[in-house]
Simulated scan of single mutants.
Amino acid sequence: MSAATTSVAVKRKGLSPLVKRLIWIGVLVLLVIAMALSTKVVPKDSELAQGTQQFNAAEYGATQFPKIQDYIAKNAVDASTLATAVKADAAAAAKQYGKSADGATYIIPVTFTGVVGTIPASGYTPITVTGLPDDIKVGLQLGPAVNGTDLRDVTGTVTLNDFENQIQYQDAGAAINEELKKNLAKMDASGLEGQTVKVEGAFTLINPQQWNVTPSQITVEK
């Protein structure tokens, strides 16, 4: 008679409730330490605490417009000198006297003296410029609307990369134009017809025979 083999199942002894509790406490302690190490204390008056500041177009325009006026005053080419250069080689003249943010269009700072023609309700006012040949016509933005971004772009240093998006970039140009409109309103530019004025401004050289100038400064000659 063969002997019966008896197997006995041995039950493993699990962790005691006390040990489990201690493990959980240890895990929580580690989590608290990790959170503390990853937390950065920021002073309440810092830029991070205040968050990203919203672009203030009006403030930008008020700050930049005087700088643009100064830049044009220092870098403007006399219109007669520019006309000679444009007649010889318009593309070379644009590169010599202008700045470009895109490498394709050039904005030129220019200065001249001339007699203001009939001011239209909208668009550019014709001005007869001293020293220019008859085949070059000059138009001047005198408001009430001021269009384009020649003043924003005349230095060649302001680009889309300076702003968060295209909307801010456009708002910056519009805000600078708003500052010009304020200046034109103060001097009552609508009443300049027939008067001799000295102009400092900027324009994009597209048509060598038509210069549409956005002024940065207008002085009435006495």
Rank of each mutant, 00 (worst) to 15 (best):
A73F: 08
Y97F: 15
K181G: 13
G98H: 07
Q53T: 12
D135G: 01
V86P: 06
Q209D: 07
K99E: 03
A101T: 11
E179L: 01
E179G: 02
D171T: 09
T118Y: 03
G194D: 07
T159F: 01
G201C: 10
L151I: 07
Y106T: 09
I176Y: 13
V199I: 03
Y169I: 02
S2I: 10
N212R: 13
D45R: 01
A185C: 06
W211H: 04
F203I: 01
S38C: 10
L192K: 08
E178F: 10
A62V: 05
Q210E: 03
T155I: 01
K181S: 15
A34C: 03
A145S: 15
I167K: 08
K222V: 08
K40Q: 14
V129S: 01
N207D: 10
Q50H: 07
A76C: 08
A73Y: 09
T111E: 10
A88R: 08
A58R: 11
K95R: 15
V77G: 03
Q141A: 10
F203W: 06
G148S: 09
Q50V: 00
I23F: 14
F163E: 06
G103D: 04
D70E: 15
Q166I: 05
Y124Q: 00
I25G: 15
I25V: 15
A62R: 15
S46H: 00
E193H: 12
Y169V: 05
Y124W: 02
G117W: 05
Q53A: 15
I107L: 02
N56I: 12
D78T: 12
P43Q: 09
I33N: 11
L160W: 02
F112I: 02
